[in-house]
């Protein structure tokens, strides 16, 4: 029994234990104030499902040896175009959601492939290059949003009639479609069943892929390229597989995020998408060289719950509205912590 507990503890890791304890303490404090604990937890569930796929997207690129995918916006933009195409045609409900995915996935594949061609040329510096690719793509797309041939009045600026708006609402199309699917209430807690199921499905598919022959090959390429060559594997093509997969997951992630959030934020909206996802997967126990699906799941649960719960609690405890400051400190502090712990679960 004791041995098993020790084994579980080692598997979970001290950082995650500390964060969990801290989280529990926060929730207890929250219960002592006039905050609604079920409400906070409901928000957490939504944010977990909403951000979970971005965190999953980190795994294929880490496993393929390209490190954390800081170029996540490349995929996010593909997802954005998918959402816009669906909205342009005023598709509502599941139809709208599916069309958005159907557009986003092929676009994500193409964008991811091109991105992988670049990363294969800068092997060893993927994370640095990826960060700037992400920034540049967002900036470049700002021009596209202004010139894009969309004509639905709900999307474009009301006056002048050219260019997309900064913030679009999905309330009239497919906002909340997934969240409300089979949603139910229990102890005052709203469970976004569809959202969580969709996330679980993707996590399962990714897990399956990592156990398949190409998944194993990708991992070998990431861990020791020279061994991979000697085993007859083509390094660049498996790295591309990982990066494309990561980008496609980001594209799907955006469609899910937008329907859950209820708004699509264009222009500089996706600039920072990679950072919380990076922080979450590292907190979950991954390193820049090794990541499992379970790291992504634990990471997104801890990170998003902490963000959701910590903010209102600090606001309650400290006079005045410091919510924004607290959010920045907490989330960047966690990224900083996580990046200093790049060795991952075992040594962290």
């Amino acid at each position: 029994m004791k041995d098993r507990l020790i084994k579980i503890y080692h598997g979970f890791g001290l950082p995650r234990l500390i964060i969990s304890v801290f989280l529990l303490a926060l929730i207890i404090v929250a219960a002592g104030t006039d905050l609604s604990v079920p409400g906070l937890l409901s928000d957490s569930l939504v944010r977990i499902g909403q951000n979970g796929i971005y965190v999953l997207a980190m795994i294929p690129s880490i496993q393929a040896g390209a490190g954390l995918n800081f170029g996540l916006p490349v995929g996010v933009i593909a997802g954005m175009v998918g959402v816009l195409v669906s909205m342009e045609n005023s598709l509502i409900g599941f139809g709208g959601f599916l069309v958005a995915l159907l557009v986003a996935i092929p676009l994500g594949t193409i964008a991811g492939y091109l991105y992988s061609l670049l990363l294969n040329r800068v092997a060893g510096q993927e994370m640095m290059v990826g960060t700037y690719v992400g920034f540049s793509v967002v900036a470049g797309m700002c021009i596209f949003w202004l010139m894009a041939p969309f004509s639905n009045p709900a999307l474009i600026w009301p006056v002048g009639g050219q260019g997309l708006r900064v913030t679009l609402t999905l309330a009239d199309t497919f906002g909340g479609t997934l969240n409300n699917f089979l949603a139910f209430q229990i102890f005052g807690l709203t469970v976004p069943t569809g959202l969580l199921l969709f996330y679980a499905l993707l996590a399962f598919l990714l897990w399956l892929f990592l156990r398949s022959k190409p998944g194993v090959a990708m991992e070998v390429v990431g861990r020791n390229p020279r061994f991979a060559v000697a085993s007859g594997l083509n390094i660049n093509s498996y790295r591309s597989v990982g990066i494309v997969l990561s980008t496609v997951l980001a594209a799907i992630g955006y469609v899910v995020y937008a329907q859950s959030f209820g708004f699509a934020q264009l222009y500089n909206g996706p600039l920072m998408t990679a950072f919380p996802a990076v922080a979450a997967v590292l907190i979950g126990g991954a390193s820049t060289r090794e990541a499992k699906v379970v790291n992504a799941i634990i990471g997104v649960i801890l990170f998003q719950t902490l963000l959701t719960v910590a903010m209102p609690v600090t606001n309650q405890l400290v006079e005045g509205n410091i919510s924004e400051i607290a959010r920045v400190i907490v989330s960047n502090g966690m990224i900083l912590y996580a990046l200093t712990r790049v060795t991952g679960g075992e040594q962290a």
Binding site: A217, V220, R223, N224, F227, V229, S231, G232, L233
Partner: peptide, 22 residues
């Protein structure tokens, strides 16, 4: 250590990897 093995991987995986892939 450079070509012959995936150092961070298990004994089992190291033994089967090449056969699995080829």
């Amino acid at each position: 250590r450079g070509v012959g093995l995936v150092l961070e991987d298990s004994i089992a995986n190291n033994i089967v990897l090449t056969s699995m892939q080829t």
